[in-house]
Design a protein around this nucleic acid. Sequence first.
DNA 1: GGCGGTCGTCGAAGCGCTTCGACGGGCCGC
DNA 2: GCGGCCCGTCGAAGCGCTTCGACGACCGCC
Lengths: 339, 339
Amino acid sequence: MKSPDLVTIADVARHAGVAVSTVSYVLSGKRVISEVTRTRVLASVQALGYHPNAGARALASRRANVIALVLPLRSGMQVPVVMQFAMAVVTTARTVDHDVLLVTSDEGPAGLRRIAASAMVDGLLLMDVELNDSRVPLLRELGRPSVLIGLPADADGLTCVDLDFHGAGRVCVEHLAGLGHRRIALLGAPAAVYDRGTGFAHRTRAGVVDTAARLGVDAVVRPCEEGTAAVRRELVELLQRWPDLSGLVVQNEAAVGPVLATLPTLGRRVPEDVSVVGICPDQFAEQASPRLTSVPVPAEEVGRQAVALLVRKVHGEPVPGSTLLQPRLTMRDSTAPHR
Amino acid sequence: MKSPDLVTIADVARHAGVAVSTVSYVLSGKRVISEVTRTRVLASVQALGYHPNAGARALASRRANVIALVLPLRSGMQVPVVMQFAMAVVTTARTVDHDVLLVTSDEGPAGLRRIAASAMVDGLLLMDVELNDSRVPLLRELGRPSVLIGLPADADGLTCVDLDFHGAGRVCVEHLAGLGHRRIALLGAPAAVYDRGTGFAHRTRAGVVDTAARLGVDAVVRPCEEGTAAVRRELVELLQRWPDLSGLVVQNEAAVGPVLATLPTLGRRVPEDVSVVGICPDQFAEQASPRLTSVPVPAEEVGRQAVALLVRKVHGEPVPGSTLLQPRLTMRDSTAPHR
DNA sequence: GGCGGTCGTCGAAGCGCTTCGACGGGCCGC
DNA sequence: GCGGCCCGTCGAAGCGCTTCGACGACCGCC
């Protein structure tokens, strides 16, 4: 019932019979303290249930041990992926003794300015970065340690982490081409996502197109809205125009289910008539029916790396510019050789 | 390039030619300051781009202006709903000058203890609360202002906000019964969700069962795993056992698509043969085909209310114990009179 | 046996802000 | 015309922590 925020470092010092600074050094390890004193202090910490006051610590050490996770909060976001990122970020941050402040950029530049200037966070993690993201110049101006999840057009001097989506597109096409498919289509993100220049969508498209050209495969690229009806419309049109279409790359989690459900109703069995490969979380691929051959977005891994890099930057260590994670294709039941 | 964290309240005071405390009072409004001084100070704030140091402010005022958003981070979570909550929470918090710290409870009780004791946050917002949530007793012990999203079994002395899921179940059944359906089924959350006693699942079930009994409708309740295959299995079994089943309540976002896709393949058209009503975000209902009659989970509204209540508690104002939002059923194209 | 060097600990000075009590100067009333 | 009062402002004392310089004790060496 009583809130024990009264326990200060001074209480611990008194309880252990040492100076305040000694307690501080025991806790931070920044100076050598004899084993016996150290043990006594830690015992007192335990006994009193002491936790350092975050504000005071931040004030004195000029370090908040908090990182900001900046989400754009706009439509067409890949919600489950974003969530996975966020969770990976929080979990990883905790392992390096940091907490995570959740920030949306709909406050505009002022929001980021405020966060940075108030010394509330030591670094910024930007998610869902667009090719021409308005937050990027701001970031440069702020001069705070930061890591981007995604790849803007001008990544100069920035630290970025992302899946190699160009490679993901390539891998998908190589897989389909290897199975003998000669005409394939990329069913992409909603048009709005391309329009605002979201990096992963454009890079995947390029990967698909480049690889198809290289391998002599005919590839057609279509944005795809969410919703069963929209997907059906798109598929009908696609198959009408190219009846020999036999390979499909789907980069839209929300479309995966509808695509697999709709194709049979259009007289195309999966994988006998049409092979489908997805770029989506494993979870979706596993739950689909038939189970979907896919290139997963390694959200966890990206989140982990991003935090690790950010913390290193906060500590002033040098870090690489861009980290692109290699795509891996997992074969399941939705792809088969071309008849 | 230069990070301007050097701008302190002292700089502002000097620039405006007043005392530090005067600047503080201008900014907080806690004392009357003459209009002329006030204007001058604000001009200096602007000119220098001053933002108060969060740590120092927290230390001196014993208030961090931050609330913790505690997510459980477990499987079977309704990811998009959670995300919607989170966004609503962040946005609302900003309107009352608070930020949001994202916390997962997988650190266990120690995590919450730490957050509370470090005075990092002024209050806690717990999401996805179970009927017998282990965090609830801890919360009582911590004695920090808190609000739960969800309804635990023992809500005594706690502040809770949630949709009235019992009412949601009732509304669905009333709607179907009103259309003349005499045998209906609730396709619920995955079994794991019931097993761990998640409140909304149990309350919905009770609402369905109670109302069916009252109206003389036969209702059968089944948990439902995610994934197209699982949904299909469930539906086949259901229809085999009760061929006269003509009404379906679906409380599982991930199942909505598969259900609507699968029913026609089992010889049941929607809504001609089977009426389907969902308890899910509007977004899903709109995108479904046919568009789904549904009771939406008002995530935004719940998030807003929760933050508002929490802030009031932080300020020591009295608040109501539990707030249950009224369910509203939106009619769309997936329900029709029984033939 | 005294001198320099460690090693372990302490004290005090801030970090940037809020807040409390005090204070000077107008204004009022008598 | 003077005491009292309010209004607007100031100075200073912390809030709880980190960190720097200092200092005593103990060691080994010449």
